[in-house]
Design a binder for these strands. Structure first.
Lengths: 162, 162
DNA sequence: TTTCATGCAAATACTTTGCATAAGC
DNA sequence: GCTTATGCAAAGTATTTGCATGAAA
């Protein structure tokens, strides 16, 4: 019952996970890392490294893009973000990431025509994935699923058939 | 000068698909495109643009990396290759691709510890994906699924728990 | 005080683009 | 002959790295 609003500061389990990973690497808990974490935790959907820097600046944090790049892998390792999206990448080959901490694991439905992204979760698929993994002797750690197609609206506008 | 025989009719259905896409764009059927297609059709698993260039050179084709880059999107559009792999990218952010033409659609099981990649196909998952897409009004065109975990061998060597 | 993190700039890596020339149609 | 493709070089963009300095433990 003590779970507060999204504005609460005290017990941030994400921060704890992040710290744990940092400590594992013999690292330190810096104000920059806290700021990066705070910005990322409020991002909904996917983002690029550059956007993290921009949001940091908007809030008055003068943190360099280099520092953002150096911390993204740690955030991935902490399970707070993940690499995302095969179907839509940046021009020069940039990678997109997505904030996933806490929320029930979800996957994406992506419209190839207008770029609409819908998050969904479908436990039955997860169960089957687990079954596949087991049949190959794998212990499943995570997965990445994108369903790419044509959304209702674009279909009405007449999306081309393949 | 090599006998291009650019006028012959390919028995290769991949080539037909590729040609169709090229024609749709008002493009032309060149010996370079044929060579790129032939190299890619023999690649198993995933690859980077640079590797296509290297294989072309190994076979005596002096085709530039630029040309490879210019043709990859057409090959994707023709359904011969697809962008691949969120879980393992190149250093500078390079994109990987994968030859998918013809083969029954498959997904990947990837060992996060040793990099082992296993292709699998599981129709039941495809059926569920179709169901999800329909429930959101999407017409599904394709999908991308990666199951990331720890393979049998790495488990025996003791892969860390998360 | 002893590391490690950060910021800056430079270096790398990947990808795209402009232009002259070659080649398909 | 008209138009597109290619190769090269250069530009553009993304990401990493070296080093001096500042900050955490």
């Amino acid at each position: 019952m003590q779970q507060g609003s999204s504005q609460d500061q005290p017990k941030d389990k994400r921060a704890e996970d992040f710290r744990a990973v940092i400590e594992t690497h013999g690292g330190r808990w810096t104000r920059e890392r806290l700021a990066i974490l705070q910005v990322i935790r409020e991002i909904r959907g996917h983002f690029f490294a550059e956007e993290v820097e921009r949001k940091l600046h908007e809030r008055g944090h003068q943190i360099s893009l280099t520092t953002v790049y150096r911390n993204l892998p740690l955030l991935v390792e902490a399970g707070i973000i993940r690499r995302a999206c095969v179907s839509e990448e940046k021009k020069g080959g940039g990678s997109s990431y997505e904030h996933i901490w806490g929320e029930e694991h979800h996957d994406h439905l992506i419209c190839a025509h207008c770029g609409l992204r819908i998050e969904f979760s479908y436990p039955a698929i997860d169960v089957l994935q687990e079954a596949v993994a087991q049949s190959y002797g794998f212990k499943l750690e995570r997965h990445h699923l994108e369903l790419i197609g044509c959304c209702t609206e674009c279909q009405q506008r007449g999306c081309r058939e393949r």
